[in-house]
Design a protein around this nucleic acid. Structure first.
Lengths: 213, 213
DNA sequence: GTAGCTCTCTACCGATCGGTAGGGAGACCC
DNA sequence: GGGTCTCCCTACCGATCGGTAGAGAGCTAC
């Protein structure tokens, strides 16, 4: 594997586990098997390395979006939530990085996140508007605030998944992940829906369940 | 104010904002207005100081419980959730400290949290059992896992409250806090309840709302 | 007075931090 | 062959880290 890629991999794990201040360049270099000076040849500074790690996670996350938009699935909100859970459960270090950065630099990270999810905002806004027209979604729902809420719900849950006793698997096939996904879907909708919307949702789920037999 | 208390106050803010590795003893001492050596007279090491900060938060949190159990309110689960939100919204640094510690030392922190909330576990277990008998709560609900989930839901939400755009107020009177409390109450129950239980909950809420007019 | 306790100070310690200078080995181009 | 580019190395830099030694100021007790 490329040395640069190896550095990024190790740095991702270290920054996620010990944070920026708790991770030293020598420790990363040691694990990769090179000297610290060699590491600084590939990344000119610790800040730059950290930024690259974060950029990689955010850009990979952003790659998920076009795939969803292109698919044009009937219920794109469900697909979006499902894919987001899958993305972060695939490697919970991604969630830990984002959560740590949110704690370390709240203002900057809020802006970065809003930029990163800007394309999704339109999808959500349309979803919310249609839901409000049909009475399923609350009148006071704010798409932007709601999107941030849901993202941090997923990120927060997966960042501390081991503490919560959630068993992960790389292909997302673990029963805990499937259960968590369903749970988060319900939670995400409950914070958005009216009481009537929730009952309609439950009705649809019951019908779908009956129909699948 | 007592110097030792001042140190604890400043350290709480710094550890919450910049984490353990990102906070230096000199920085804390400077803000308090003493030399680093004087700080180390009151707390023999950085580790000890950090432990004291965390201990203070957890013990203050634990003080909330007896008050609730003594009150013996009809729906103690609601009271518990409400008080937990109030406690962490009073000073979100408490939530940040716990969240950071959970990220830095997941195994240790899981155990500490379980010990800290052990008295609550009985209350929840009883609540869950009764709910299961009446069909409101899912059959597969695990009180311990559920309790950790709810706590981290509250802690996570309040730790990044500024990023989420939640306006806090020390007395918990801000409309955002009231809204968040209601939201978390619904979310907490949705992850525990059956579909039927949710509809009954909504029915009760509607009735209470109508009755209040 | 003076002994002793509490608290803060200056000065210093070794270790480690992020980062730099400069050289050497190998591959490639001409 | 020689020149150049890539990559890693050793050796070193000043700054800062957590922590220690020891003196001195202020207070209390006798």
């Amino acid at each position: 594997m490329d040395v640069r890629t190896q550095i990024l991999d190790v740095a991702t794990r270290r920054f996620a586990a010990q944070g920026y201040g708790g991770t030293s360049l020598s420790a990363i270099a040691d694990e990769v098997g090179i000297r610290k000076a060699s590491l600084l040849y590939h990344f000119p500074s610790k800040d730059e390395l950290h930024r690259s790690v974060l950029d990689q996670v955010l850009s990979r996350w952003n790659e998920v979006l076009p795939r969803l938009l292109a698919a044009g699935s009937a219920d794109r909100f469900d697909a979006l939530l499902h894919e987001t859970v899958r993305f972060f459960s695939e490697d919970p270090d991604r969630a830990r990085l984002i959560l740590r950065e949110t704690l370390d630099n709240p203002v900057t990270m809020r802006e970065r996140l809003l930029v990163a999810v800007a394309p999704w905002l339109q999808v959500i806004a349309g979803y919310v508007r249609r839901g409000q027209e049909s009475g399923e979604v609350r009148a006071d729902a704010d798409p932007e605030a709601y999107l941030l809420h849901v993202i941090h719900l997923v990120v927060g849950g997966l960042a501390i998944s081991d503490t919560l006793g959630i068993v992960l698997s790389p292909d997302g096939a673990s029963s805990d992940i499937q259960r968590l996904t369903r749970e988060l879907e319900r939670i995400a909708k409950v914070s958005l829906f009216t009481d009537e919307g929730i009952e309609r949702m439950n009705g649809r789920r019951a019908a779908a369940h009956a129909g699948s037999h």
